[in-house]
Design a protein around this nucleic acid. Structure first.
Lengths: 185, 185
DNA sequence: GTCTATATCATGATAGAC
DNA sequence: GTCTATCATGATATAGAC
């Protein structure tokens, strides 16, 4: 015996939080909702994470650490293989967005749920979350921007940044999948 | 004398609501914040609009009524001018997105503030808002989709719908302007 | 129409027994 | 580590004086 039993309270809170923050946003998700969904006690969130703010940051960090490393790994690998020659822009795009989309198939890494949460969070109203996200992203974003600059030496940098923005917006909106305009088909 | 004085309580609430919902989202904006910002009494929102839900719907309707009519007017005008010949896709794009972007310069119609609110609301967590927006948009969206179908008879309809989605996502994200990835430039 | 005052409820957080 | 019980606060909404 010696039953594992707990099935990890911490992890269950993170899973429930991820799903509920995705569905209702940060402000719209109460800790009562999270803990009842996770079938743990209300006080458990504060015990394990300290606060609701710290909880959502941990929800993101759990997935982003891997995503950041993977994106970086893929980029460096491509650059090494190219041996000094410039990468094709499509390669860089695939390194950034392809890596993200492959998370959708990986339930261990959050799957579609986390992808949607991430997509919606780019326009999340709560400022501390956007700030936190920007900070988490900063290093990798800068590396990819540099890669684009090198791959497209004739395109003004500001133009590249805009294109990156547009791709990111299109992707995140498609992923968020809110279907605000579904109308009737 | 006979002082106008009130400067329209109703309008002041709508203006404050528009700005604050844009900045903090629906759940993140309390009625106390709105009424204090608008320098009106707390009870005024319920008196004039009935509830917080009705208030935000009115915030949208005030602007969308005009936008919907204008988008429709522009499209019909182009179709009439074409006299049966198919429109160029770029014309349709301009009718839809150009009309929207021209609102940014029109302070009377909400300007940049409303545009940002609209952009962020496409991924708004509160479901009743997305449902409301989808309903408000439905008629015009369907008309524009039809126009694209006619203008691009060789492109599968599902493909056109996806492209529309991507444009919308890219636009709304650029407009929302949260700069979640600004990092350091 | 606008105010004050208040009802009612849900929230995030914590203290303290087990 | 996990529970119950509770605090303090802030939320939406409304009743009723002016």
């Amino acid at each position: 015996m010696a039953e594992i039993r707990t099935a990890d309270t911490r992890e269950r809170i993170l899973d429930a939080g991820e799903r509920l923050f995705m569905a209702h946003g940060y402000e719209g998700t109460s800790m009562r909702l999270i803990t009842s969904e996770a079938a743990v006690n209300l006080a458990a969130v504060n015990y394990h994470f300290g606060s609701k703010e710290s909880l959502i940051q941990e929800v993101f960090r759990r997935r982003l650490d891997w995503l950041n490393e993977e994106r970086m790994r893929v980029l460096v690998e491509m650059e090494d293989a190219a041996a000094g020659k410039p990468l094709k822009p499509s390669q860089i795009v695939d390194g950034f967005f392809g890596t993200l989309l492959r998370m959708a198939d990986d339930e261990e890494r959050g799957g579609v749920t986390f992808l949607r949460l991430l997509g919606r969070t780019l326009t999340e109203p709560s400022e501390f979350i956007r700030t936190f996200l920007a900070h988490e992203y900063a290093t990798v974003m800068d590396r990819y921007k540099e890669a684009f600059f090198k791959a497209l030496p004739d395109v003004p940098k500001a133009e590249i940044v805009w294109r990156f923005h547009f791709m990111l917006g299109a992707t995140s909106y498609a992923i968020a999948g809110t279907d605000a305009l579904a109308s009737g088909d």
